[in-house]
Amino acid sequence: MSDDILVAKKTATFDYNGERIVVHAGITRVRAGHPMLEGREDLFEPIDVHYDVEDATARPGAKRSGGSTGGRTRRKKTDEGSEGSSGGAG
């Protein structure tokens, strides 16, 4: 998939469809097959992917480790008034 996107190898300017285009080395990206590349292929190269997308689960229907709370702990509900109250007059 990274072969679908090209990045400029060097900074250059050229005319394209009546506009002055500036491409910057390492910054400007163009989709492979774009008409702008015709005759300028030497200005671009495929991008390097440093971090690719990982699958969320190993297979469809597989459960993630850590339970359904996403690592959060759920508090148990208790009877009203039992949390933090002394329950009587002093």
Rank of each mutant, 00 (worst) to 15 (best):
S2R: 09
S2K: 10
I5S: 02
L6N: 04
K10P: 00
A12K: 08
T13E: 15
F14N: 10
Y16S: 06
G18F: 08
R20I: 03
V23I: 15
V23E: 04
H24G: 00
H24C: 01
A25L: 01
V30S: 03
V30D: 01
R31C: 00
P35E: 15
P35L: 10
P35W: 04
L37H: 02
E38W: 00
E41P: 03
E41Y: 01
E41N: 03
D42L: 00
E45V: 11
Y51W: 04
D52P: 03
E54L: 13
A56I: 12
T57I: 13
T57A: 14
P60I: 11
A62R: 05
K63I: 08
K63L: 14
R64A: 14
G66R: 04
T69C: 06
G70P: 05
G71P: 06
R72H: 11
R74V: 13
R75I: 02
K76T: 08
K77S: 14
K77V: 12
T78Q: 10
T78D: 08
T78W: 03
D79I: 05
G81M: 04
S82V: 15
E83C: 07
E83D: 11
E83I: 09
G84R: 10
G87F: 03
G87H: 05
G87N: 05
A89N: 10
